[in-house]
Design a protein around this nucleic acid. Structure first.
Lengths: 201, 201
DNA sequence: GTCTATAGACCGATAGAC
DNA sequence: GTCTATCGGTCTATAGAC
């Protein structure tokens, strides 16, 4: 009888392998069809398993979704905290916003396609908070219609570029998107973009 | 026995009134909760009816959805045809794209929130076609990464402004959004915006 | 035109064998 | 760790009375 103390083993005895394969397949399906249109049957089929087997690794569909969302939420919370305390510059907000959207682009895509997934996490509204906070950091707390429009277009553009243009190399995509966003909100940085501000993800 | 030839009466004898009330309530719920999360029970409840009554006016949920989407699809098809034949100027593309998104902003919001509604219409993909065709009209058929990014940001910004900023008066929203989109794709119109190009919706 | 009642399908979740 | 079998709930859609 071989002792189960090889790699890919966790304290509770569940092999991490299947659990992560479930994560990968589930995330891909959630992006394609949304959370609620993806059944546990779909996930199990693509893995060659049955629904019941999934319940050995995750206590419910809701907690499976939550475990996929949690890292993104933690990252967003950390960003909002640091950007909120020290009032961040437009460039800092825009760079951080792009990096957040790029690093978690798959789960963000899934959440945009089907916001019902937010119900899986207790403190929902963190995505709305990110949007409104970033908007306020860029446009101020009493913005004119023009400032509001520019903030909406800039942030929404960053988000879309980070998620739907995967064939453009990351560094080029990041540089061009951020420069364009700064143009849009009229950041008076005459020099287009110094050599710094490299990738983070 | 009174003859049914009064107003709000159609050839098949069904009063248009209830049918349109169903349309209005259904569209509002579809925007709020998505197509698949909105049950016929939800719609019937808000109208003070039962599920079965809805089936008198619409043969199925799918056809109810289709009847809501059809006008938007027809409008999009017409726009793509006229813009495709005569190669339209960037301003024409941008104005037409904004007007489409504004005129049908409710159904577009619902479709973005829950694309499964597209399954209700035979030729799906018309929404993807609108996006890719508009992008090509703005950036050309072999665009550089910079041109692609600018087209994505400009069109996506137009769409978002038309749908999520309803508190800004239409004429101002239209003018500012279109001017900003033209800035983004570097339309060399030095004069910001002449007096023409008024509302269409 | 609207109702009650129910058929039929699908999904999440649990129980228990192996 | 994975399986079969099944329960309970929800939803679309139909049948038939009024």
């Amino acid at each position: 009888m071989r002792v189960p103390d090889e790699p890919q083993q966790r304290r509770d005895g569940r092999s991490t392998d299947t659990r992560e394969r479930i994560h990968d397949v589930a995330l891909a399906l959630f992006v394609q069809k949304g959370f609620s249109h993806t059944t546990l049957q779909d996930i199990a089929d693509q893995l060659g398993l049955t629904r019941a087997a999934l319940y050995y690794h995750h206590p419910s569909k809701e907690q499976l979704i939550a475990s996929l969302i949690q890292p993104a939420k933690d990252d967003v919370d950390a960003f909002l905290e640091t950007a909120g305390c020290n009032d961040a510059s437009p460039r800092e907000v825009i760079e951080g916003f792009f990096d957040l959207n790029y690093r978690h682009r798959l789960i963000f895509l899934a959440l945009v396609r089907d916001p019902s997934g937010l119900g899986a996490i207790d403190s929902s509204g963190w995505v709305t908070t990110l949007a409104s906070q970033a908007q306020e950091l860029l446009a101020g707390d009493d913005p004119s219609p023009d400032q509001r429009i520019r903030a909406v277009v800039a942030l929404n553009g960053l988000s879309r570029c980070a998620t739907v243009l995967p064939d453009i190399p990351h560094d080029e995509l990041r540089r061009r998107s951020i420069d364009l966003a700064l143009e849009i909100i009229r950041e008076p940085s005459s020099e287009p973009s110094d050599e710094s501000s490299d990738s983070r993800s």
